[in-house]
């Protein structure tokens, strides 16, 4: 169990907090100290809105031990509306319910637990957008 490693990254994982280049405005996730486009070292925090589309996905049936409670689950490449492409678990839907091009939204969920006595790691997953209408 590496508590400091998790703690260092947790805020970015809870909130989907990336970075924006102060020079060329390139948005990155995960956070970059150096802009991957213009190499500027002036990057600031940027909260992504957590919406995107599934670009590709796969079904995981033999997960690592720490993800066994969730199996089977899908992992997708998601094109965020701000531009970055990220890899994330899909929740609240199985692979057979997904389609390439489907709109998805970020939710903060339990990613893994370090046994019964360790810390619980929360972070981003994505799910098909919850559609709602008011009565």
């Amino acid at each position: 169990m590496n508590v400091p490693r998790h703690w260092r990254e947790q805020v970015r994982r809870y909130r989907l907090l990336g970075s924006k280049c102060c020079d060329c405005e390139e948005i990155s996730f995960p956070y970059r100290l150096v802009c991957p486009k213009c190499r500027s070292r002036k990057c600031e925090d940027y909260a992504l809105i957590g919406k995107g589309k599934i670009l590709s996905f796969t079904d995981i049936n033999s997960p690592p031990q720490e993800h066994k409670y969730n199996m089977p689950y899908a992992v997708a490449l998601i094109g965020l509306v701000e531009g970055p492409i990220i890899t994330a678990q899909i929740t609240d839907a199985r692979a057979e319910e997904l389609e390439i091009g489907m709109d998805v939204e970020m939710v903060t969920r339990k990613i893994m637990e370090y046994n019964e006595d360790g810390i619980i790691c929360y972070g981003y997953k994505f799910r098909p957008i919850v559609k709602y209408a008011h009565p």
């Binding site: 809870y14 929740t91 903060t108 969920r109 339990k110 619980i120 929360y122 997953k125």
Partner: peptide, 13 residues
């Protein structure tokens, strides 16, 4: 609750 949900994740939503 789903397998990745608890009072924390529900409260965040």
């Amino acid at each position: 609750p789903g397998s990745d949900e608890d009072s924390v994740t529900i409260a965040i939503e």
